[in-house]
């Protein structure tokens, strides 16, 4: 009798062990999926430029060199002098200098009026312009176009040479008017 009961109990326990779940699997520190990126693979894609100039390539250009390029590659969309459109108006300085965009719906967001960082011009032109052949400009051409646009906005002298040392130093009048998001932080963090 005792033996039979014992056998019955062990059988029941065995059954329990089979249906009781194990604790949820813990995620490992690393999964080991993916492969290391080589310096060459990174360099092939790493085209961004930061406000302090990190990422700017070798090369240089002047406004005079950029003027001819602008006429053939940019004027069609941005106008003969950068003020006419039909696409984004790039050139123009508001004489008030007070950043009155909230009061004046017609004030164009030009590089001289609205762009807070000169490095952004280089970064954007190099990655996305012209739309018919994005990424086709040489670094010297991008420096030259950047110099042309900055000079047209009265931000650098006509003879200034733009390169990785000089471009981050260009003072942009709009920078002082940008503020971070001051909306109050969330009372409750959105749930996952």
């Amino acid at each position: 009798m005792t033996r039979i009961r014992f056998a019955f109990m062990s059988c029941a326990l065995g059954g329990l062990a089979a249906i009781a779940p194990l604790a949820a699997q813990q995620a490992p520190a690393r999964f080991g999926i993916g492969r290391p990126a080589s310096p060459a693979e990174i360099a092939a894609l790493d085209i961004d430029v930061m406000p302090d100039g990190r990422g700017l390539p070798a090369g240089k250009g002047t406004s005079a060199e950029g003027q001819a390029l602008y006429a053939t590659k940019c004027a069609q969309c941005h106008g003969a002098t950068g003020k006419e459109g039909p696409n984004d108006v790039l050139v123009g300085r508001d004489p008030r200098g007070t950043f009155p965009f909230s009061q004046d719906p017609k004030l164009p967001h030009t590089i001289g009026n609205y762009w807070p960082y000169a490095t952004t011009v280089f970064d954007y032109v190099r990655r996305a312009m012209p739309p018919t052949a994005p990424g086709s400009l040489t670094d010297d051409e991008v420096y030259a176009l950047t110099a042309f646009l900055l000079h047209a906005n009265d931000l650098i002298p006509a003879d200034a040479v733009m390169d990785k040392a000089s471009l981050p130093k260009v003072a942009m009048p709009a920078r002082q008017f940008f503020t971070p998001d001051t909306r109050k932080q969330l009372a409750t963090k959105p749930q996952r």
Binding site: F99, S102, Y114, P116, T120, A174, F177, P180, T182, R183
Partner: peptide, 17 residues
């Protein structure tokens, strides 16, 4: 910077909103 920022009535523009 030049897009996706909002001018405010106090003559500023909000970024990273």
């Amino acid at each position: 910077t030049s897009k996706y920022t909002e001018p405010f009535a106090n003559n500023t523009a909000r970024m990273f909103s």
